[in-house]
Simulated assay, not measured.
Amino acid sequence: MITVVAVQPLLGQNPDPPAQGPEFGGSSPIGLVVTLLMLVALIFLIRSMNKHLRKVPPSFEPDPEERDQAESASSPVPGARPSPEQGGRPSPGTSADSSPPS
């Protein structure tokens, strides 16, 4: 009972509003400069991305001539891996050069 009587005046008080100076809510010129710099950087990034995207081909599928050349240059044994001399990767467990260690 004593604690309720002691706490009751504290609960009835309104807290003080936070201190706000005369410049509260106003923006500074530094914020404007930072925002403009970010806008300029964004414009340059978009222009650069558009230049790079124009260089990308519309399709990544090979032309029919290239496809025929790739099929004729493929390994004669179906499912066989091309050797490193033919542009294939070496098998796991073998070194890139086939010379014996000295």
Rank of each mutant, 00 (worst) to 15 (best):
M1G: 12
M1R: 14
T3R: 08
V7D: 03
Q8M: 12
Q8D: 10
P9F: 10
P9K: 09
L10W: 00
L11E: 03
G12V: 04
G12T: 07
G12M: 08
G12N: 12
G12C: 06
G12F: 01
Q13K: 11
N14Q: 14
P15W: 02
P15K: 04
P15Q: 06
D16T: 15
P17R: 10
P17C: 06
P18H: 02
P18T: 12
Q20A: 04
G21I: 06
P22L: 03
F24N: 00
G26H: 07
S28Q: 15
P29W: 03
G31Y: 05
G31M: 09
G31N: 06
V33E: 07
V33G: 01
V34K: 10
V34A: 08
V34S: 06
T35I: 07
L36I: 10
L37E: 03
M38P: 00
M38D: 09
L39Y: 01
V40R: 00
L42K: 04
L42Q: 11
F44V: 13
F44K: 09
L45N: 13
R47G: 13
R47D: 07
S48D: 11
S48G: 09
S48E: 13
M49Q: 13
M49W: 14
N50R: 12
N50W: 13
K51E: 10
K51S: 14
K51Q: 12
R54V: 00
K55A: 04
K55S: 03
P57H: 05
P58Q: 12
S59M: 04
S59G: 06
F60E: 05
F60W: 12
E61G: 03
E61R: 13
P62G: 00
P62F: 02
P62L: 03
D63C: 00
D63F: 04
D63P: 00
D68L: 13
D68K: 15
A70H: 08
A70Q: 13
E71Y: 11
E71W: 04
E71R: 14
E71I: 12
E71D: 15
A73S: 12
S74Q: 09
S75F: 03
S75T: 14
S75W: 10
P76G: 05
P76S: 11
V77P: 01
P78G: 05
P78Q: 09
G79P: 00
A80T: 03
A80C: 08
P82S: 02
G87R: 08
G87E: 07
G87F: 06
G88K: 01
G88L: 01
G88A: 13
G88C: 07
P90H: 04
S91I: 08
S91N: 05
S91F: 08
S91Y: 01
G93D: 02
G93P: 00
G93F: 01
T94M: 06
T94F: 01
S95V: 13
A96K: 09
D97A: 12
D97S: 15
D97K: 02
S98H: 11
S99G: 10
P100D: 07
P101C: 02
